[in-house]
């Protein structure tokens, strides 16, 4: 492989990590409730706008981050309460439509509050490229990679090593039996939506300095996160990282060699292929059939 190809793959892979993080947000709620927030992309966008506002209000970077993350958690909890809880209690799939609608609502809210234009997202992290073995990477890009990997490692440790994390899996395996152990399924599901909102917000904060912030960033991100989640499945955190890296590099190569207009193609092709090979989808039957 020549060096230009490697360079393209590395920059693409970094974007792929962001797709993986958004897809990971799907996994978190799917794990406890077999439901996902179809407005996850809008949640990323809203959190990014909110964080931008905090920055514009003069909050330093290290205070803006917890503020933005808190917004994500609250928004995730709101989605659960407003769009998901009732449907799950009635064992219906109404959450699909509800989370889509909440997402659309989020887009119009963003357009009204912040406008339709894409805006730059300032960051104190340097953007001058550094050279590693002739590959140039910016510290900003490195911060994205570190952020994504760190949050996923922390959440995976929580799920595997703490009793509450094991309770997540118990609720997913058998909700009624978990209740008999004194585990409140409702609270566990709430918590998973809160965590899912947190990773969405982090994705927004990490990616915005690179891509800019705008109401359209939601749909672009969520489509790729979907491709990643459908291909990798909704169970394995490791899987979304691998598929995310792959899709990111593929995108970057496509847009360079085929044309930047084709940038979205690999994600779509991957999604179609995955669904064609496994028509029921790795999402489980109900979801794919209804969407």
């Amino acid at each position: 492989m020549n060096q230009a190809v490697i360079q393209l793959m590395v920059s693409g892979a970094l974007m792929g990590l962001v797709y993986a993080l958004v897809a990971y947000g799907f996994q978190l709620t799917y794990a406890t409730s077999k439901s996902i927030n179809f407005g996850q992309g809008e949640l990323v966008m809203l959190s990014a706008f909110f964080s931008l506002t905090l920055t514009n209000l003069g909050l330093p970077y290290y205070l803006m981050i917890p503020g933005g993350l808190l917004f994500g958690v609250v928004a995730g909890l709101f989605v659960e309460r407003a769009g998901v809880r009732l449907a799950l209690e009635q064992k219906s799939e109404g959450w699909i439509l509800m989370t889509i609608i909440l997402g659309l609502f989020g887009v119009s809210a963003a357009e009204n509050i912040w406008g339709r234009d894409d805006r730059p997202f300032p960051t104190p992290i340097p953007t001058e490229p550094m050279q590693f073995f002739d590959i140039s990477i910016t510290p900003l890009e490195i911060s994205v990679a570190i952020g994504v990997v760190m949050i996923m490692v922390i959440i995976e440790l929580f799920k595997r090593k703490t009793l509450l994390g094991k309770a997540f899996e118990a609720v997913s395996a058998d909700r009624d039996a978990a209740e008999l152990m004194g585990i409140s399924a409702t609270r566990t599901i709430m918590l998973s939506y809160g965590l899912s909102g947190l990773v969405a917000a982090l994705a927004g904060i990490l990616v915005s300095p690179i891509t800019t912030v705008g109401p359209t960033m939601a749909s672009a991100l969520v489509l790729k996160a979907f491709s990643v989640a459908v291909v990798a499945g909704l169970e394995s955190g490791f899987g979304v990282v691998i598929v995310g890296l792959f899709l990111g590099s593929l995108e970057s190569l496509t847009s360079f060699y085929v044309g930047s207009g084709w940038r979205e193609a690999p994600g779509l092709v991957l999604l179609i292929l995955a669904l064609a090979v496994r028509p029921t989808g790795i999402f489980g039957k109900a979801v794919i059939r209804k969407v």
């Binding site: 703490t162 009793l163 509450l164 094991k166 309770a167 899996e169 118990a170 997913s172 395996a173 058998d174 009624d176 039996a177 978990a178 008999l180 152990m181 004194g182 585990i183």
Partner: peptide, 24 residues
């Protein structure tokens, strides 16, 4: 109704969920 994907010991620990610390 055991928690199939979890280990035997994790099942037992979850039985005591109400009495045990939830993190460490």
């Amino acid at each position: 109704k055991v928690f199939g994907p979890l280990s035997v010991e994790d099942n037992l620990l979850l039985g005591a969920f109400t009495r045990l610390p939830h993190f460490f």
